[in-house]
Design a protein around this nucleic acid. Structure first.
Lengths: 242, 242
DNA sequence: CAGTGGTCTAGACCACTTT
DNA sequence: AAGTGGTCTAGACCACTGA
């Protein structure tokens, strides 16, 4: 792997090629979550680049939460453990500021023809099927979120046939080899419909946050479309601007 | 400046010391917004470190949006121009996805005794005074945000005595030498009070996003407390999870 | 063309973990 | 003590800007 390979018009630095190689290995399942990477110098000699170039590739992967480095121990492919979920993907926190992992209770699950909204979010064809899961989530035994998840059925065959666990992203990785790498959320305020209000133990019309999340896999494919209705009487969505 | 100066218990890498030096220069006004930095190698020889160490310090400052680098031109202290505001600080976008900078109309302004909420957010003493500005913001000529800003009066003397401009963060820097570096937002859903509903041309009880922002200066001081009520009928708050 | 930031390399040493 | 990531240095060359 030489820098010269890619010079000229579309110049792509060597360290990015190295990074792409590593991402590919993670997406392939060669490097599953938790996998310990070889040392930086070993990877460098394997790829025929300098240790500093490998290091720069790993710097970017670390900043994207795709690998975890521990001084003295090594570098590991990131896992969707509770800590990472809370840090990276769960922005709803109690007003006391302490993050808590919610419990879940599935209300319904099945495979259906995708709605227009789902097709648009997940970039699906007009006759595509989606697995749909509706569930309530509890924090400190209070129902605070009711949400609907939509997954392309082709990517997740049979997912609604057995009970889904509370921590979905680890399950996607384990059962289907799909790693959620990032997500985009759109947040609006809505008035609760009677059906959702009942579940959340509020009156119809009560204000709630609607969080619409599109989750993307390592290769950038849209993988999960999630619409969450969240009570914010004792909680808030935390966003850091820097 | 040698690494050895800080070894031992509280080890602080050299590049962080360099970074702190640069931040100090920005906070001091030695390096105001837009200021062109000397070249990396000049800074390195000035501080007696290697160019790579200066580079690593600038890498962090760039990732925090405190400097802007342009290959071939140089490195500049970041300014609060429209582009940066939209990118870093304005997360409410029209559902069509195109970011637009809102217009503002001030409703009232004055200096008052700080409320408990303001004292807590801004870390003020019990008898502190705050400058308070209430304004409506328009996107595409529609009133979509009504917000109240609270500023420690001691930091911003006289700010309510002349009309405040639409782009406040540039004004804080220009008139008071205070640079807003980052912010934290807490988002909840509320039902509009009659007073706010009228301003936003909706009925009382209409759902809205309440965004509570605490903005921090370069030195980490809490500088601005802002509570914005936002209509999300044709807009949403965008959040990127990575 | 000179000057800037961006990439890549090679090597030394430090901080930390594990054996 | 050995092995890992983390820091720091020095030097070469590339990509880009502006005079």
């Amino acid at each position: 792997m030489r820098a010269e390979d890619e010079k000229g018009v579309g110049f792509r630095p060597l360290y990015r090629q190295v990074k792409d190689t590593f991402v590919k290995r993670m997406a392939d399942g060669q490097w599953p979550p938790g996998h310990p990477l070889a040392s930086e110098s070993q990877l460098a000699s394997e790829l025929g680049v300098s240790q500093g170039t490998v290091r720069k590739a790993l710097d970017e992967l670390e900043s994207e939460n795709l690998v975890v480095r521990q001084q003295g121990r090594g570098t590991f492919v990131a896992q969707h453990d509770e800590k990472r979920i809370l840090f990276q993907f769960f922005k709803l926190i109690k007003n006391d500021g302490i993050p808590r992992f919610p419990e879940s209770q599935v209300l319904s699950a099945g495979v259906f023809k995708a709605t227009a909204e789902e097709r648009e979010g997940l970039d699906l064809g007009s006759s595509a099927m989606v697995a749909r899961v509706r569930r309530v989530r509890f924090i400190a035994d209070e129902p605070v979120i009711v949400e609907t998840l939509s997954l392309p059925d082709a990517m997740f065959p049979g997912i609604t046939e057995v009970p889904v666990p509370n921590s979905l992203y680890a399950y996607y990785a384990e059962r289907y080899g799909i790693t959620i790498a990032s997500a985009r959320e759109k947040i609006t305020a809505i008035a609760l419909q009677p059906r959702d209000a009942t579940i959340l133990d509020r009156d119809a019309g009560h204000p709630a946050l609607m969080v619409q999340r599109l989750a993307l896999a390592l290769d950038g494919r849209a993988v999960e479309w999630r619409v969450s209705l969240c009570l914010t009487d004792t909680m808030h969505y935390a966003s850091s601007l820097r």
